[in-house]
């Protein structure tokens, strides 16, 4: 069955809630009859089957994550949801100080099986509803972070996240959801997949080679993974063979997979939709430089958004997001000296 990312996430949530009565969803506008099913339709209609376990909240992000944290310690498995990833910042204390640390502070005596879902992506809404927050959490020990770029991975990673006994933050991209009806986004990229009927999971901490190549390794997740594939196609016409790796999990990173690829190509470029400062590229490139410095035949390259908030103007926004052409340009410079 071919599903969009939003449909695949919905299927994963529904399957898991049928399988395990301890799972419940909590968030804003997630299960209001006649409503949206969350900001991007992921939970649309789930209230029909799981009324008692779909908790609609006031606009109270501290409470959403605080309540999820408390419930997780009382043997439930919450899936907490924000409409836009940007709102995670309202709940930063609960996420970083409580959810991420409580097991550690307890000396490993308690469990925090909790999933947090957050849409990201620079998508025509200006600075406060359209940014990528992955780096804010990559520096936070205690949370696992996944970022599915396809519907197959969205379903498999969400299942894995729900079954994990540690807190997992799942970043979903607004332009990859394939949301329909009034919640449809312009500029959407097709990330739909054939979803098998079986109960598969995608293991947390495992990346995947999306495209094989021998000259350069491009690492990218979410929308940037799709743009990296487009860039690789452009480069192929010029005789440059790019390998594209989708880490799928941002923490713990599958650094072994990336290093194996870089050993082969000798070059690494990391693409991200967030600003370059303190970003995903900084972390991945630093790790690669630490563990296999002798394999790099060119300096690593970070292809990122400018070190500014996301602008609104479509002209500036297009400049802000690394486009396939820009990715190809930067990578070309690495290969052709």
């Amino acid at each position: 069955m071919r599903l969009s990312v939003a449909e695949a996430l919905r299927k994963a949530i529904a399957d898991e809630m049928r399988r395990d009565k301890s799972i419940f969803c909590i968030g804003e506008d997630i299960a209001i009859p006649g409503g949206f099913g969350g900001a991007f339709t992921v939970t649309l209609g789930l209230e029909n089957e799981f009324r008692e376990r779909m908790i609609d909240t006031p606009i109270s992000e501290i409470a959403i994550f605080g309540y999820a944290c408390g419930a997780a310690m009382m043997e439930l498995r919450p899936i907490a949801d924000v409409q836009y990833g940007d709102f995670l910042l309202c709940a930063m204390d609960q996420i970083v100080n409580q959810i991420a640390k409580l097991r550690y502070m307890s000396g490993g005596k308690l469990k925090m099986p909790l999933v947090m879902r957050a849409p990201v992506g620079v998508t025509g809404r200006g600075s406060q509803h359209a940014q990528n927050l992955e780096p804010y959490f990559m520096c936070c020990p205690g949370i696992k972070i996944v970022a599915p770029a396809t519907a197959y991975d969205a379903c498999g990673l969400l299942r894995a996240a729900v079954r994990d006994d540690d807190p997992v933050l799942i970043f979903e991209h607004k332009l990859l959801y394939g949301s329909k009806g009034p919640r449809q986004e312009s500029g959407t990229v097709d990330a739909s997949s054939e979803i098998p009927d079986d109960d598969y999971t995608v293991p947390i901490g495992k990346g995947i080679i999306r495209r094989e190549g021998k000259d350069v390794t491009i690492v990218a997740s979410l929308l940037m993974m799709h743009f990296a594939l487009m860039a690789a196609q452009l480069l192929e016409k010029e005789g440059i063979s790019a390998e594209v790796i989708d880490p799928r999990t941002l923490w713990p990173l599958d650094i072994g997979l990336i290093a194996g690829s870089v050993k082969k190509t000798g070059r690494i470029a990391v693409v991200e939709e967030s600003p370059k400062q303190g970003g995903i590229g900084a972390e991945i490139c630093a790790q690669i430089s630490e563990i296999i410095p002798d394999y790099l035949i060119a300096p690593f390259t970070r292809i990122a958004a400018p070190n500014t908030p996301a602008p609104f103007s479509p002209v500036m926004e297009k400049f802000y997001i690394p486009q396939p052409e820009r990715i190809a340009d930067e990578v070309r410079k690495m290969v052709i000296v």
Partner: peptide, 19 residues
């Protein structure tokens, strides 16, 4: 963190109610 246990306790109570 001052005040931070209040929503956490709420969540524990929510779990008791759900269960």
């Amino acid at each position: 963190i001052v005040g931070a246990n209040i929503p956490i306790i709420g969540g524990m109570a929510l779990a008791f109610k759900i269960k």
